[in-house]
Nucleic acid binder design. Sequence first.
DNA 1: CTAATTTGTACTCTAACCTAGACAAATATA
DNA 2: TATATTTGTCTAGGTTAGAGTACAAATTAG
Lengths: 251, 251
Amino acid sequence: MESSKARQIYLVLRDRIAGGHYADKAPLPVEQDLAAEHGVSRATVRRALAALEEESLITRRQGSGTFVSLDGKPRPIAADFSDALAHLTAMGRATSVQLLAFGYEEAPATVADALGLSPGALVQRSVRVRAIEGAPFSYLTTYVPEAVGRTYAEADLASKPLLALLERSGHTLARATQSVGAQLAAPDVAAALDIETGSALIALTRTVFDEAGRGIEHLAALYRPDRYVFRMELQRDRSGARWSPALRNEA
Amino acid sequence: MESSKARQIYLVLRDRIAGGHYADKAPLPVEQDLAAEHGVSRATVRRALAALEEESLITRRQGSGTFVSLDGKPRPIAADFSDALAHLTAMGRATSVQLLAFGYEEAPATVADALGLSPGALVQRSVRVRAIEGAPFSYLTTYVPEAVGRTYAEADLASKPLLALLERSGHTLARATQSVGAQLAAPDVAAALDIETGSALIALTRTVFDEAGRGIEHLAALYRPDRYVFRMELQRDRSGARWSPALRNEA
DNA sequence: CTAATTTGTACTCTAACCTAGACAAATATA
DNA sequence: TATATTTGTCTAGGTTAGAGTACAAATTAG
């Protein structure tokens, strides 16, 4: 089932289970209905279900049905948008970082644009994977203008958060723009995050500026949605016209 | 290429182009490299590229290379997290809503839990698709406790935002919790959003409470990331310890 | 002008995937 | 207890997708 209709169905059902669309212990639709929904034969649905059963995400009982099984499955970490990292460490959970790539190269057009560099300028590019208790959950690609990057060493990246390094070297981080989308996992990312190619990932890009408005860091991050979700609390404004974010302390 | 490795590659490249990973006019990796990256033959890569070319997302020149082509392609709408809708209408863009399903049924366990209802309680379920200038971008499934749902009519849903209806009928919306993840498009959603099954979607779930802490609405929304992204501005706190969201007026 | 690079085209072979159907076994329902 | 429902097992057959290879045509670089 390397790539196929069965895999597609497997991935869709997996997302739904992880996302709470089917609650724990709840029955999945019967095989006939799943087949109809996806426009395939029952044999194909059964292969998808077999894969889910192998991960013990479901249990199947002949004559009865197929049921979600989330016994000891870890729930995703809920993180604030504003400072995810402080959040995790504050929770006392062991996160580790692996540096997959590091070097200086010409800035891709999209990065040069975001950071306000001239096309072809040199940037430091690094790729890191962050894991919590051994389970990888994010794939981070960062770009930093060369002059900024030279203020710290490669080894620092594996041990300290990048924003901390930037502040240590005297840069003031004043403002950032962030946008969130979704993206499919390419083979390299899938391998690093221990998932299958074609899984859905949260895509977050962030550009950080100093007080002079110069671009300091450009981040393209991919998160496993089954291990990491962004959560926020909203409160109705006194005026009643808008919602405003409430600052959080805990997950 | 209904489901296959070629399709997988097609979707990955499509996401990258839409997400700005490859900039406009920039060359894609050569077919050999793409084949190596994805672990397939060149013929398979070529089928993926053919599909991209058909949508004129790329142009291919024999002897030269393959290039991103984003001429008249619309950029995704950038929306604030706090009140996306007000945002859109404020921009003066024509959004339309289609009501796909409406009815009362037993609350799924996950919904009953979120709204604080007893298991098996009746809820109103509605499915809507929102489009901007004819292009669908969101698939919204909402659950409302029966008593609350009875305060407005089915026809209202097709014309007014749900939150406005709730306020009109005297409910005060005090607080909401929201979380953002990612999910693959199932066939029904894919058809409604005019995309292919297996595309990556932003998944947002929100639960709205009144001032007494009662659950009023539970929303499960799916967004096309090529048409809709969540954007936010962050500012460094005076203390310098955290980031805080800056309220926005415009995209 | 020449050589290297890159996309375009053509072909064969194979294996994986999917469909379709029928029936068995376990469970739930009336 | 009898009947319907649901998962489990098996078989046969056909279609498609993919690998691999070779070469042609256009473009670029030296």
